[in-house]
Write a protein that binds this DNA or RNA. Structure first.
Length: 376
RNA sequence: GGGGGGAUACCAGAGCGGUCAAAUGGAACAGACUGUAAAUCUGUCGGCUUCGCCUUCGGAGGUUCGAAUCCUCCUCCCCCCA
C-alpha cells in the first residue's frame, strides 16, 4: 500500500492525498461506507460505484466470520469477489463488537470469547485468530484487534484496556508477519490508538502506535458518547503524535460536522453507520441541513428531495413521495435514504478535498458546518 | 315472525360495581441513532390554569355511598331459525 500527500492546508492541519491498494486508488480525505456483513445495507454495489462514488467500503471480521463463514469466503476468493465490489475493502477487527456486544462476551488478556448473537455458540477471538480471519476475508486494510472502551470509562480501566490493546497489537503484528496473504495481493495492518478520554493515555497510546505503524494508523474508542469537543481535542492531540506520512483513520466518525472537524485536524479516512442507518430511519443529510422525512410537514411538499443533490434519487423522487414511502414502510424508502446520505457524505469529503487543493478549506468548512448541521 | 349477540377513545379491541381517562395492538405526532445484534428503538397520544380538576365508554332515565360495568325504555348493528 502506498500513500502520497498531494496538498496540505495552511490554516488547518488538513491534507489531501492518494492511497494506492491492490484493488485500486483512494483519494483522501475519504468516507468509507460500512458494509458489516459484506453488504452496505440497502444499497446495490452498482449504485455504490456509480452514484455514491464510494472508493472503499468496510466489512466486519466478527460478523463475516459467523456468516457466511471462512470456508465460503475462501472459496469465493475473498470478500471483494464474493460481494461483487472488486475494489478496496477494510475490515474492522471485531474490536467494536467487544464494546457493542459487551453483554454477551468474556474479555481476558488472551482474547475475547463471543457468544454468537445468531445462535449463542461460543467463539474465541485472539489477536492471532483475528489476523487469520482477516487474511481469509482478504481485506486490503486489516484492523488490529483492540478493545473499544465504553464511555464513561474509569481511568484505571482505560489504562489497563489500553495496555491490553497494545499487547494485542504486538501479537497482531507478529501474526501478520508470520502469515501470507491468501489471494496473492498485499494486505496491510492498521494499529489503533486507544486510551479513552484521558490525555496522558491517548498520548502514550499514540506514541506506541507511531512506533509500530507502517502503512497507516487509526484512532479508535471515540464517538462512543463523549462530548464532541472532547473528541476533537483528543483527535488533535493524537494526530500531533502520529506519523505525518501515512494515512490516519478516525474510526466510527461521524456526523458531517465531526468529519469536517476531523479533516481539519489531519484525518484522512472516516467510516460511520450514520448515513446508512439514519437513512433507513428517515433522517436525511443534505448540504442545507438535516431532514426527518417522516415529518408531517413534507406530506404535500412535491419539491425534489434535494434539487442539486449528489445522488440520482435526489431529483427522481419528491419529498412527499419519500415521506409516503417511509410511512408505508416500503423497503424503497430505506434504499433511497441510504443512497442519498452516502452520496452526500462522499460529496462532502470530495468537496473538502477540492478545497484543500484550492487552499481555502478553512473558510469553506466553517460555512459548511453551519449549513449542514441545521435542522430543516 | 321467532330466538340470540352486540354498541368502549382516530381504528380494532380488553374491561363487566370502586384500584378506569379506561389494558393491548394499530394509526397519528415527535424524538433518538457515530469502527451496525438496528429497514430499529423511545416518548406522546380526551380537555385544562396538569403533584390537581373537568368531560367521556350508543341515547334517555333509574338502582347504589360509588356505574363503562346492574335495571328499564329507545336507537342502530350482527347472527341463527322460519
Amino acid at each position: 500500500m502506498d500513500f502520497k500527500i498531494e496538498a496540505k492546508d495552511i490554516a488547518t492541519k488538513a491534507r489531501s492525498g492518494q492511497i494506492t491498494t491492490a484493488h485500486g486508488k483512494i483519494e483522501t480525505p475519504i468516507f468509507m461506507p460500512v458494509g458489516t456483513v459484506g453488504s452496505v445495507k440497502a444499497v446495490q454495489v452498482s449504485d455504490l460505484k456509480t452514484d455514491v462514488k464510494a472508493q472503499i467500503i468496510l466489512g466486519n471480521t466478527y460478523h463475516l466470520y459467523l456468516r457466511p463463514g471462512l470456508e465460503v469466503l475462501k472459496k469465493a476468493g475473498g470478500l471483494q469477489k464474493f460481494n461483487g465490489w472488486n475494489r478496496p475493502i477494510l475490515t474492522d477487527s471485531g474490536g467494536y463488537q467487544v464494546y457493542s456486544l459487551s453483554g454477551t462476551r468474556k474479555l481476558s488478556e488472551e482474547g475475547v470469547v463471543f457468544r454468537s448473537h445468531i445462535d449463542g455458540s461460543k467463539h474465541l477471538f485472539t489477536p492471532e485468530r483475528v489476523i487469520d480471519i482477516e487474511r481469509c476475508i482478504g481485506a486490503d486494510i486489516m484492523m488490529a484487534f483492540d478493545e473499544c472502551t465504553p464511555y464513561p470509562c474509569s481511568y484505571d480501566y482505560a489504562r489497563k484496556s489500553m495496555q491490553m490493546t497494545h499487547a494485542w497489537l504486538d501479537r497482531c503484528i507478529a501474526q501478520y508477519n508470520a502469515t501470507e496473504p491468501l489471494y496473492g495481493y498485499h494486505q496491510t495492518l492498521f494499529p489503533i490508538v486507544q486510551g479513552s478520554v484521558y490525555k496522558d493515555l491517548r498520548r502514550e497510546s499514540a506514541e506506541k502506535i507511531a512506533s509500530v505503524a507502517k502503512e497507516g494508523c487509526s484512532i479508535g474508542g471515540l464517538s462512543v458518547g463523549e462530548p464532541k469537543e472532547v473528541m476533537y481535542e483528543l483527535t488533535e492531540l493524537v494526530c500531533d503524535i502520529l506519523p505525518k506520512d501515512i494515512p490516519r483513520y478516525l474510526m466510527g466518525v461521524g456526523t458531517p460536522e465531526n468529519i469536517l472537524e476531523g479533516i481539519a485536524q489531519g484525518i484522512d479516512m472516516f467510516d460511520c453507520v450514520m448515513p446508512t442507518r439514519n437513512g433507513r430511519n428517515a433522517m436525511l443529510f443534505t448540504k442545507n441541513g438535516i431532514l426527518n422525512m417522516r415529518n408531517k410537514k413534507w406530506a404535500e411538499d412535491f419539491s425534489y428531495i434535494e434539487e442539486d443533490g449528489a445522488s440520482y434519487v435526489d431529483t427522481l423522487y419528491t419529498k412527499a413521495y419519500l415521506r409516503h414511502l417511509f410511512h408505508a414502510q416500503e423497503f424503497l424508502a430505506g434504499m433511497i435514504g441510504s443512497l442519498h446520505n452516502l452520496a452526500f457524505y462522499l460529496w462532502l469529503v470530495g468537496e473538502a478535498r477540492k478545497h484543500i487543493l484550492l487552499g481555502d478549506f478553512a473558510i469553506w468548512k466553517s460555512g459548511m458546518v453551519k449549513q449542514v448541521m441545521q435542522r430543516l
